[in-house]
Simulated scan of single mutants.
Amino acid sequence: MKKELLGVIDATTYHDDLEDLLTHRSLAALPFAGRYRIIDFVLSNMVNSGIRSVAIFPKLQYRSLMDHLGSGKNWDLNRKRDGLFFFPSPIIDNDSNRIGSFDRFAENLDFFYRSTQEYTIITNCYTVFNMNFKPLLEWHIRTGCDITDIYHKDGHSMEMYLVKTSLLIKLIETRDVTGYTCMKDAVTDLNSLYTVCHYDYTGYSVMIDSIQNYFSTSMNLLQTNIWKQLFLKDQPILTKVKDEPPTKYMKDSSVQNAMIANGCEINGTVENSIVSRGVKIGKGSVIKNCIIMQKCQIDDNCYLDSVILDKDVKVEAGTHLTGSALTPFVVRKGTKQGALMNS
């Protein structure tokens, strides 16, 4: 049991710049790449690294996250021992962007007491990357670090921390004495009694923290070289499985450089876009540089360029919506867009 890892995902973060997409969901549950949620990446990384016990700490609007994760079966975490644990936080505060809050962990300190894993990896929920944590753990042990802060190749912290579980418990228990409120406080204190190390991760990694960032990262997936860095055969990104029929491409449809999920019906033109499950696109409609989320309906003769449609949006016939790469046009979940509304 010595070199086993406990996984902890902090899903409490809220970014104001993503407000239009977070009205009905947490950041962890934000749809991505047609069939995934943002949390799928870090959760899959943990499972692919041999982690068999994962605790998720959400705060607000976590119904869709719970619905997506379920029992953890799709990640092989529906176990009699260990498995997937969900610890919603009753703490309502304005400090929502500090990863690894010791106050939140303290509410469920018994979980850490009972854990048999000697080490704990604490992560955020909104980084798109594919990383095996085993080499990190070996490096951490070999170098004699107390806390390891994972850094991206651009020199910034990825807000992911590796620490002995016993030390994590100590940091939680002594937070009122040390003044440490979260993991970041512990790693940035120049007078710290602990050996803090930086581990450089050189793979593809993007932290989703704004609409523009979400849009550009999604569009970049249409580049083969980036796709291959993120979706690896030996380290698959797992997600909730849905049994849906294949997509229907009607005789007048045209699709170029696009990702189309199952269950869609395409009658129009789709270029450089990501289309999620169950979307219907009408005749004569043109979709360019767009992100179309689940079960949207786009009627005939519409034109959409640089648009993000959240789930269950209906776009009426003849509607034209145009944004840009820097400021994509965002339509909130479950709303209707009509030609008269935009004239």
Score class of each variant (00 low, 15 high):
G7T: 01
D10W: 09
Y14V: 14
D16C: 05
E19P: 09
L27M: 04
R35C: 08
Y36G: 05
I39Q: 11
F41E: 07
G50D: 03
V54R: 02
R63D: 14
D67N: 03
H68W: 12
D76C: 12
N78L: 01
D82H: 09
P88V: 13
N94C: 11
R98K: 13
S101M: 09
F102D: 10
D103R: 15
D110L: 07
Y113H: 12
R114G: 14
T127Y: 01
L137D: 05
R142S: 02
T143Q: 11
G155W: 08
V163Q: 05
K164G: 09
S166I: 00
S166K: 00
I169V: 08
I169C: 01
R175F: 04
Y180V: 04
C182P: 07
M183A: 09
D185H: 14
L193R: 15
Y194F: 09
G203V: 01
I211S: 00
F215C: 08
S216A: 02
N220S: 15
K228W: 10
E244F: 15
K251A: 14
D252E: 13
S253K: 08
V255Q: 11
N257P: 04
I260P: 09
C264T: 00
I266D: 01
S273G: 06
S273K: 03
S273R: 02
V275N: 02
G278A: 11
K280W: 11
G284K: 05
C290Y: 06
K295C: 04
D312T: 00
D312A: 15
H320K: 07
F329V: 02
F329I: 04
V331H: 11
K333D: 13
